[in-house]
Amino acid sequence: MTGERSRGRLDKRAAILDAALRVFSREGYERASIDMIAAEAGVAKPTIYNHLGGKENLFRQIMIDAARETSATFLAALEGFPGDPGDAGSLRDGLLAVAPRLVGCFHRPESWALQRLLYAESVRFPDLYATVRANGAGQIADALAGRLARLGNAGLLEIADPDRAAGHFIALLTHELVARSELGNRTISAEEQDTAVAEGIDAFLRAYSPR
């Protein structure tokens, strides 16, 4: 019985956080209210206060949780990242195979919602950017830098600064799609994504292939 109660609390908490992300994304922080979130989640207003406190704490929690979820999804996709391919041709093929899954981590509805909210509320919560980055983009960049450093040590890439190379890799894969999708407000076709990903990989390899 205790286990069922605990699971029920976790399920209710997850439902509140999911509802809060939808409401904050739709209304913005200023217009969103605990009443709206309670209605969206199908719970009583006091339940939200009992589980997650007030509006500000709830907003901070959904931002951190969304960042952690994006990071976990990216790290899982990174398992397919090439380790020590035999030649430059297979390295390109390996990067092309994993890159769409990596890009997809940044183009999920939850990821777009996180980015839009973070930009929109950066003045109201100036400390939140660093916290969200530490739980999301920072972990992603560190993991990717490690994989790229391994390729550099194998002589397949020429990398002096793995952290900077990781930033370049992510930017080359995602920047064009961010602009084309208008921060997730426009659907990107599979053909557009494939073209942008291939061009990003080729640009990265031109920059970092051994001279």
Results as ranks from 00 to 15, higher is better:
residue 106 F to P: 03
residue 107 H to L: 15
residue 107 H to R: 15
residue 107 H to C: 13
residue 107 H to D: 12
residue 108 R to K: 15
residue 109 P to M: 02
residue 110 E to K: 07
residue 110 E to Q: 10
residue 110 E to V: 10
residue 111 S to T: 04
residue 111 S to D: 01
residue 112 W to F: 15
residue 112 W to K: 11
residue 112 W to C: 11
residue 113 A to Q: 13
residue 114 L to N: 05
residue 114 L to V: 07
residue 114 L to H: 06
residue 114 L to Y: 00
residue 115 Q to V: 13
residue 116 R to T: 14
residue 116 R to H: 07
residue 116 R to C: 08
residue 116 R to P: 05
residue 117 L to K: 03
residue 118 L to K: 11
residue 118 L to P: 07
residue 118 L to Q: 08
residue 118 L to A: 10
residue 119 Y to C: 08
residue 119 Y to H: 08
residue 121 E to H: 15
residue 122 S to Q: 11
residue 122 S to D: 06
residue 122 S to G: 04
residue 123 V to R: 12
residue 123 V to L: 09
residue 124 R to V: 01
residue 125 F to S: 04
residue 125 F to N: 02
residue 126 P to F: 08
residue 126 P to K: 12
residue 128 L to V: 03
residue 128 L to I: 02
residue 128 L to M: 06
residue 129 Y to V: 14
residue 129 Y to E: 11
residue 130 A to K: 15
residue 131 T to L: 15
residue 131 T to V: 14
residue 132 V to H: 02
residue 132 V to M: 01
residue 134 A to E: 09
residue 134 A to V: 13
residue 134 A to I: 10
residue 135 N to W: 08
residue 136 G to K: 06
residue 136 G to M: 09
residue 137 A to K: 09
residue 137 A to M: 09
residue 137 A to V: 13
residue 139 Q to M: 14
residue 140 I to Y: 02
residue 141 A to G: 08
residue 142 D to E: 07
residue 142 D to C: 04
residue 143 A to R: 03
residue 144 L to H: 13
residue 145 A to W: 00
residue 145 A to T: 03
residue 147 R to Y: 05
residue 148 L to M: 03
residue 148 L to Q: 00
residue 150 R to K: 10
residue 152 G to A: 08
residue 152 G to M: 06
residue 153 N to C: 07
residue 153 N to V: 05
residue 153 N to P: 02
residue 153 N to E: 13
residue 153 N to T: 05
residue 154 A to M: 02
residue 155 G to R: 04
residue 155 G to V: 01
residue 155 G to A: 01
residue 156 L to K: 06
residue 156 L to Q: 03
residue 156 L to E: 02
residue 156 L to A: 04
residue 158 E to T: 04
residue 158 E to M: 05
residue 158 E to H: 07
residue 159 I to M: 05
residue 160 A to K: 02
residue 160 A to F: 00
residue 161 D to P: 09
residue 161 D to K: 06
residue 162 P to V: 11
residue 162 P to N: 04
residue 163 D to L: 03
residue 163 D to C: 02
residue 164 R to S: 13
residue 165 A to L: 08
residue 165 A to V: 11
residue 167 G to A: 09
residue 168 H to P: 09
residue 169 F to W: 11
residue 169 F to C: 12
residue 169 F to M: 06
residue 169 F to I: 10
residue 170 I to S: 07
residue 171 A to F: 14
residue 172 L to I: 14
residue 172 L to R: 07
residue 172 L to A: 06
residue 172 L to T: 14
residue 172 L to M: 12
residue 173 L to F: 08
residue 173 L to K: 10
residue 173 L to D: 10
residue 173 L to I: 11
residue 176 E to K: 12
residue 176 E to S: 12
